[in-house]
């Protein structure tokens, strides 16, 4: 896992360099797309590479465990079915008496091992990134899902979603488990994830073809 991160980082740095003298720099999040006038238009290859970066984060347990196709979330690095009979409910927030908020508060509860962020809830079924057998969907499938306007309510705000959505931010500061161990982090930092998203969006959100 460590070496995978290194490889991704190196690849990413090359990607950024290769994409031209973009205004991106480490730690520079929140730069608007209007500054791209100094950037070289990204190639489809660069866009696909950026997409793979994004995909690597989306399919990490910290993200994909709430992007299920079923009526339950997952938990843990092994993404087992969330214990205690919790269910999706009609609004993706659980059911009365057993809401997500029944246990998950607005911030991580490290003293008891319960992760938390503002408005903890499941992603809608339109944003499922697994099949009904909890198998992770392929890169082309998830890419199509994100770019399908009939499914994704926020395709235009995707960058913003990745920048500011509390549940996205949570994945990069996921708190500690009950035994005190820190939860595993996605393969990119939040800044890197935002940058990859931006690069993919600027390249026109290309999707890989099916193998």
């Amino acid at each position: 896992m460590f070496s995978y991160r290194v490889i991704l980082r190196v690849f990413f740095i090359i990607l950024v360099a290769g994409a031209g003298w973009s205004t991106l720099s480490p730690g520079a999040s929140g730069q608007s797309m209007s500054q791209k006038e100094t950037a070289v238009p990204a190639t489809r290859e660069a866009g696909l590479a950026a997409w793979q970066q994004v995909y690597s984060v989306l399919t990490h347990p910290r993200c994909i465990s709430c992007h299920t196709a079923t009526n339950y979330p997952q938990q843990g690095d092994d993404r087992h079915r969330h214990l205690f009979n919790v269910v999706r409910g009609p609004g993706d927030k659980g059911v009365p008496g057993l809401n997500c908020a029944t246990c998950h508060q607005g911030a991580n509860a490290d003293s008891t091992g319960v992760p938390g962020a503002h408005d903890w809830h499941l992603a809608p079924l339109s944003m499922k990134w697994q099949d009904i057998n909890d198998k992770i969907l392929s890169s082309p499938e998830i890419c199509r899902s994100l770019t399908d306007r009939s499914k994704n309510h926020i395709p235009d705000g995707l960058l913003k979603h990745h920048q500011v959505e509390p549940l996205v931010l949570w994945a990069f500061q996921p708190g500690r488990s009950r035994d005190g161990t820190a939860r595993a982090l996605p393969p990119l930092t939040h800044d890197e994830f935002v940058a990859a998203t931006r690069a993919w969006v600027e390249a026109g959100t290309p999707c890989p073809k099916n193998p």
Partner: peptide, 26 residues
């Protein structure tokens, strides 16, 4: 003590809440 049984259920702002895992600071 691990939010598995529901015996600790109270209401916080009207939402059923498992008080055994919610730190008082939250």
């Amino acid at each position: 003590g691990i939010a598995a049984c529901g015996a600790c259920t109270v209401h916080v702002a009207g939402i059923a809440t498992r008080s055994c895992v919610v730190p008082v600071s939250l």
